[in-house]
Design a protein around this nucleic acid. Structure first.
Lengths: 101, 101
DNA sequence: AGAATTTGATCCGCAAACATATCTCAGTAG
DNA sequence: CTACTGAGATATGTTTGCGGATCAAATTCT
């Protein structure tokens, strides 16, 4: 496989930290996102790749927003996020580019 | 089911504009992302909610990156992207918050 | 005009996300 | 010790994303 599993892990970790920072339980987030608790758990542990709609709903339930930005702008955005919000780690650092394996 | 369809439509529109800006065909992007052309078409037209991994692969194939950012930072990031923004329209503007429909 | 490319659209089959229910374990309170 | 809560984990069934193949329509090029 590839970076996919790592990406899911990063997403799940991101969600988990945001959830704990918000003081919510898995069930609460799952309910807010409109999914079941076992499924939210799979997402948080990186065991499942949620759908785009589920991803958006979970993110919003946690006070986050999913954005698609040009890769060239990622560093600038990370710099914008790093100093202030210490709870969130930016999403991903595109190691290389473009396609997958 | 309301905002979800719109969100998928926005994602698809975002991808389509990035693809045309890059001068790529649907098949080329699908190949770069490691998915089939009919499926990329579904994503671009908002007919299907891609999985998280697929979403990331497609985004990277188009020179984009998926990020999860605090909703409070969205305006600042959009401001960062708009003025010199090469291609894109930011992702979504969280109209409300928390849960979905 | 015909040929090639790009895109839209459909079907089949499979794999995976999803719901629901259940069970277990760790921790905290009674 | 018992009760409750948050969380990990499994099982069954449904829904749906996905690949592959195939069709037609629109576009462009020679």
């Amino acid at each position: 496989m590839k970076t996919e599993a790592e990406a899911l892990d990063m997403i799940g970790d991101h969600f988990r930290r945001a959830r704990l920072a918000a003081g919510l339980t898995q069930e609460q987030v799952a309910d807010l996102a409109g999914i079941s608790r076992p499924r939210y758990r799979d997402i948080e542990t990186g065991a499942a790749a949620a759908r785009a709609t589920t991803l958006i709903n979970v993110a919003r339930a946690l006070g986050l927003e999913m954005m698609l930005v040009p890769q060239a702008m990622v560093p600038a955005i990370e710099a914008l996020l790093s100093p202030q919000g210490e709870d969130d780690r930016p999403a991903f650092s595109p190691q290389a580019e473009g396609d997958d394996e």
